[in-house]
């Protein structure tokens, strides 16, 4: 079963990796975005899926990664080193922050994590001497052929995705994953039977952060320009959990499936209903909550069909 899941995932990466050879630039761009969102969704899965903490801090980690990478690269450090620097910075940030905010639970944790995104965005936009403030920051672009550049960033993102997937499989089969699932079900009971909840939660929080930092830094190098509103989007912070929930939170393949479904839907609606794009995303969320509460992987589709039919017949009789 585990081998089948890994095989499926490898096949999916292979499909994405092959896009530059048979598809146009727009598809390749979508593939890069898909890989990036998958990295974010898998990362969120550690804290939101396995541990069950409603974290909305993803955008903070991503944005800080963007800025850390861009600032270091701006100072003349080679690109790969800048990415590593961003990763380390975001991991440290998450470790320190996690030790503080993970004492909160439920609604307070959710609000606290949203506030972290806002504070990061506000600090970055007002610290103009370092970050360029609201004017944003330019990152040196790669001077290769555009197609080569796109291919390069696609493979980097897919590399990150492979790393985060490997960590997910490892955590899922390791006592760490078991402990995190215990915390999700009942934190006090987990504490009582000897799970070091504080340590486990901080580890999950750092796992959920550090690759977001890398992905942010890589994104900054790819697009060449970042600004505070783009890097710290509150929309991103909700989108990523929605992608994971769409696939199935706390599962090994869920984030990949959810992200793929979401990105395809989003691209389609962007292309066809530009001014209604946000409302349609909202409708997807409402549909998800009511009809696919466990995500695509955990839903019995018979029940969904029955429910939809039930609706229709009830509507007809009324």
């Amino acid at each position: 079963m585990r081998a089948a899941k890994v095989l499926l995932f490898v096949a999916w990466i292979a499909v994405l990796a092959a896009t530059p050879f048979f598809a146009d630039n727009n598809i390749v761009r979508t593939a890069i975005m898909l890989a990036m969102y998958s990295v974010l969704a898998y990362s969120w899965n550690f804290i939101g899926g396995f541990t069950g903490y409603p974290s909305f801090a993803t955008a903070a980690f991503f944005g800080l990664g963007c800025y850390a990478g861009a600032i270091v690269e701006h100072a003349g450090v080679p690109m790969a080193l800048a990415w590593i620097a961003a990763t380390v910075f975001v991991a440290l940030f998450a470790a320190v922050l996690g030790a503080i905010v993970l004492r909160l639970r439920g609604h307070y944790f959710a609000i606290g994590s949203i506030a972290i995104v806002e504070v990061c965005r506000l600090v970055v936009s007002s610290w103009s001497s370092l970050t360029g403030g609201g004017n944003g920051l330019n990152v040196p672009l790669l001077m290769w052929h555009p197609n080569t550049v796109a291919m390069f960033f696609l493979y980097v993102m897919l590399g990150l995705l492979a790393i985060v997937f490997a960590i997910t499989v490892f955590v899922d089969n390791h006592r760490l994953g078991f402990g995190l699932k215990c915390i999700r079900q009942n934190e006090d009971a987990a504490d009582m039977v000897g799970v070091n909840t504080t340590r486990y939660k901080v580890i999950a929080f750092v796992l959920s952060a550090f690759l977001c930092g890398t992905a942010g830094a890589v994104y900054a190098s790819w697009v060449g320009y970042i600004d505070p509103t783009d890097s710290f989007q509150i929309l991103l912070t909700v989108k990523v959990p929605v992608m994971t929930l769409l696939g199935g939170a706390g599962t090994v393949l869920g984030p990949a499936i959810g992200t793929a479904a979401f990105v395809v839907l989003e691209e389609f609606f962007w292309a066809n209903f530009l001014s209604w794009n946000r409302a349609i995303l909202g409708l997807i969320i409402v549909f998800l909550i009511f009809f696919l509460p466990g995500g695509l992987l955990n839903t019995s589709f018979r029940r969904v069909v029955r429910r939809l039919r039930g609706r229709e017949s009830a509507g007809a009789s009324a």
Partner: peptide, 27 residues
């Protein structure tokens, strides 16, 4: 329908509804 669900679900649902209302207002 979901009022007793965990915070993640209720928050995400109201956010989805907010996206719809926000979009209606901007249009």
């Amino acid at each position: 329908k979901v009022v007793t669900a965990p915070v993640l679900v209720t928050l995400t649902l109201t956010f989805g509804l907010d996206m719809i209302l926000y979009n209606l207002m901007t249009v």
